[in-house]
């Protein structure tokens, strides 16, 4: 009991009385900004790669581009996120702010994984759909946009949700490039107060809650997608 009372008192003292909740909130904001920004970049890159690789199967002109995509995927997947982040911060984007570097580096990292997710979503759509679109005179790109992608979304969205959950947790290393996202904020508070138990417990709880909320939303989304599909069958 004593432990909880003391935990509670310290918690109130650090975060409320001394006002450090503001640092946590601004850290959370940065975590959200990096995650959402990186997600947007990742989806965009992933979409382009997936489509290039889909079309490269029977287009010689796209082969070099597809090869470049493979190089990108291989390189990015082979380098730990922290290393990638530091390369961007210290070598490639020297004059950029930490948070910008974070968004770009995480976006480029996640693009490599998104590409595979989106590609397998596209491949899950029956081949006859592309043929039907082409036989009507639609171009490959038109068929992709009107016929294939709307069907692939059903497979892709849940996978993107999973990727987002992984991404939120991964952004905790953004502190390496001086971005005060939530982990970094809590570390600063800990250094300031010498209080590990309260601060780190809170940090773990914050991620846990975020992940639980995202997982719930994802379940909801999946249910809606499958309900839509069912309605068409009833």
């Amino acid at each position: 009991m004593q432990f909880f009372t003391s935990f509670y008192l310290k918690f109130v003292d650090i975060f409320i009385t001394r006002g450090m909740y503001k640092m946590v909130l601004s850290g959370l904001k940065n975590t959200a900004v990096i995650t959402l920004g990186a997600l947007a970049i990742g989806v965009a890159i992933g979409m382009v790669i997936a489509i290039v690789k889909y079309f490269a199967d029977d287009s010689k002109a796209l082969k070099p581009l597809a090869w470049l995509c493979d190089v990108y995927t291989t390189v990015v997947r082979g380098i730990p996120m922290v290393v990638l982040l530091m390369i961007f911060y210290y070598i490639i984007l020297v004059s950029a702010e930490g948070i910008t570097v974070g968004i770009i580096a995480f976006g480029i990292n996640s693009g490599a994984y998104m590409a595979e997710l989106i590609r397998s979503g596209i491949n899950a759509v029956d081949r006859g759909q592309m043929e039907a679109g082409r036989s009507l005179g639609m171009s490959k790109l038109q068929t992709m946009r009107k016929i294939i992608l709307p069907q692939a979304v059903r497979y892709i969205l849940p996978a993107i949700g999973n990727e987002m959950i992984a991404l939120v947790k991964e952004t905790s290393v953004a502190g390496y490039v001086a971005v005060a996202e939530v982990t970094r904020s809590i570390f600063l508070i800990r250094n300031n107060t010498y209080e590990s138990v309260v601060t780190l417990t809170l940090l773990a709880a914050i991620y846990l809650v975020i992940v639980i909320i995202l997982t719930r939303l994802l379940k909801l989304l999946e249910r809606r997608l499958s309900n839509n599909a069912k309605r068409r069958k009833s």
Partner: peptide, 18 residues
Amino acid sequence: NAHRQKMGMVFQQFNLFP
């Protein structure tokens, strides 16, 4: 694509857009 517009095709598996 322009020529295919003038050639309708019907498939064994229908291939309607679900």
